[in-house]
Design a protein around this nucleic acid. Structure first.
Lengths: 352, 352
DNA sequence: CTGTTAGCGCCTTCAC
DNA sequence: GTGAAGGCGCTAACAG
């Protein structure tokens, strides 16, 4: 790491001197601004290379003296996970302030494409950067592309709109998340032995049309088909992430499925599943795997109702969103490796 | 988040004006420096509260114009995981440079307490902050405390010395990591059914005296005893994290243990275990759980030799170390929640 | 196309 | 105990 012959830290001024140009010219080259001849530019670049110059971020930030407005579009009301996202944004207030970033959380009906599209249409001019919990819907794609065309830096958050021209997606690979859930269920149930008939697996999902849930079901199904063909998957039931609905659905599932051995919930509202099982005296006897760490799922992990959770860290996601938007608006590079959001597996024993 | 009535961003100058003092005095109060009377201080503090002032990090950093020297003491030669740590430190070079931090990696024989203690004794004066992969040994405790007394900010990395006065430990809870491994092994093997005799579990460990490995064995044993008493744990064998030794040990283990059903490796060198199993035609038939994601363990996860890994993210650890040391030397607060290093579970399906 | 110059917001001598 | 003034390294007007 001893990569600089310390004769006092290297500044742009040193580079300018070494290249025989003025500070301003060196600055133009380093920041890729126009108005410099080919040869002067290469002289400066050569000096940058030779001296190993890197601009001091703090000084650049101070001198730029620009402030930014970011908007974060989240589903209104909503579930614990989204509330956590909002809380983490507020918890980052100092980070934002220290970078002259004003953040506004905009709550809207994300599940209604028209409403969401209309909301997005009103954003240019109000914000320099926008993070949105998106829908994979043609109207949303257009709305996002319009935002991008209006010069707004756009990233999707948690739920992607991959066909849009958003600059970045902050969230997990939901197919991988579903596969992970599938492997956990399959392995936890164990290999069939002797005359073991396998059994049925119930699938509770939020809605058939949400991309993230669909991807999870898809990944789950992949693993089940490939690796655990002796297990039967029931037709997914839709509880719209609502504990009450989930409870009713699971009650019926229990009644209708004598060989039920496991339940996979692709979304929120896991607590309803736990309640239905407890009522039937089946808690801990039927294997449950769900998503996201919340007070409710934490409790059910600790009491054994749920065996494992597949999760994404909302804190990481918010910090990543902040870094990425800031990098995008201020023209810095984003370090992909650092911004990868992991699919986490949480058992009772590695609860954070 | 609309917490500032924007009339242009708030600066220390505004606070000084509001409190009726000079910039310098306001600065002294805000940074808790001496030489201000009680009443002036409270006037300033009141203004800070009322206006909701937060200093702009970039300006502070620039004005401080101080540079720091950090040293990171790592085990010499060493395994893939430690090499990854070193690589991540080099990959953070820009981050460090942008904060005027010069980092030096110091390789030493961490496993020899005297050698390590001597190395640490030579550090004061050379560094403002030191991160060390420590040993839980009285001599190391003293060496760390001496460093702290010499005014050096010290954090332990990956392996702790909890009785020392190090300011922070950057690493995972190894008991939790061992428990997690235990739950994975227990659940993957499945509940005993009918006349199922359970089986034996081999334990491969680095050395009996390393604290992290001992803690992992302890956590693993806790879960086994509590939850899976039908499984027999063999006496741990010590392979010093060396693939060759591990291979020989596992060969013998296979020969001596007809009912071997699983192997848990608390440390490195998992590849030797995989090789021994492959030779015996037992790969994928004996359940393996190990630690840390490396090219070798990744391969064995993909081919099914290992069912799961319990891991810590070296990238997170290096970034956390950097943030914490920087915060310590520059007198900033550290956000505990953000610095918690997670015990990760990696399956084939959620490989990053 | 290139150079000069005045700050960005805070910290740190140095006087008072 | 308090204040005035210069500068940290870079950027962005403005001249030339």
């Amino acid at each position: 790491m001893n990569n600089q012959q310390d004769g006092g830290p290297l500044t742009l001024r040193d580079v300018a001197a070494a290249a025989g140009v003025s500070l301003a010219t060196a600055d133009r080259v380093v920041n890729g601004r126009p108005g410099v001849s080919e040869k002067t530019a290469s002289k400066v670049n050569e000096a940058v290379q030779r001296l190993g110059f890197r601009p001091l971020a703090a000084a650049a930030e101070l001198a730029r003296a620009r402030s930014w407005r970011f908007g974060v579009v989240l589903p209104r009301g909503s579930n614990r996970f989204m509330l956590d996202i909002a809380d983490h944004i507020r918890a980052q207030a100092d980070w934002f302030r220290a970078r002259r970033i004003a953040v506004e959380i905009i709550e809207t009906d994300v599940f209604d494409a028209d409403r969401l599209a209309a909301e997005l249409a009103g954003l240019p001019g109000r914000f320099d950067g926008v993070a949105v919990v998106a829908l994979d819907h043609p109207r949303i794609r257009v709305a996002i592309d319009d935002l991008v065309d209006a010069g707004v830096a756009v990233v999707t958050l948690v739920s992607d709109s991959p066909s849009s021209r958003r600059r970045h997606y902050v969230g997990i690979d939901n197919i991988a998340a579903g596969r992970t859930a599938g492997s956990l269920v399959g392995r936890f149930l164990g290999r069939p032995r002797g005359d073991d008939p396998g059994g049925s697996i119930g699938i509770v999902t939020g809605s058939g049309s949400l991309r993230d849930h669909a991807e999870r079901r898809f990944g789950f199904g992949q693993v089940m088909t490939e690796e655990y063909p002796h297990l039967t998957r029931l037709v997914p039931v839709e509880g719209r992430d609502d504990p009450e609905r989930n409870r009713a659905l699971v009650r019926r599932m229990i009644a209708d499925t004598p060989d039920l051995v496991a339940i996979y919930n692709t979304g929120e509202g896991s607590v309803g599943i736990g309640e239905a099982l407890a009522e039937a005296g089946l808690a801990r006897r039927i294997l449950c795997v769900g998503h996201e760490l919340t007070p409710a799922t934490r409790r059910m992990l600790l009491d054994g109702t749920f065996a494992a959770l597949v999760a994404q860290d909302p804190g990481h996601e918010v910090r990543s969103m902040a870094r990425v938007l800031h990098a995008l608006v201020s023209g810095q590079e984003i370090i992909a490796a650092q911004e990868h959001i992991r699919v986490e597996v949480i058992l009772r024993d590695n609860l954070p």
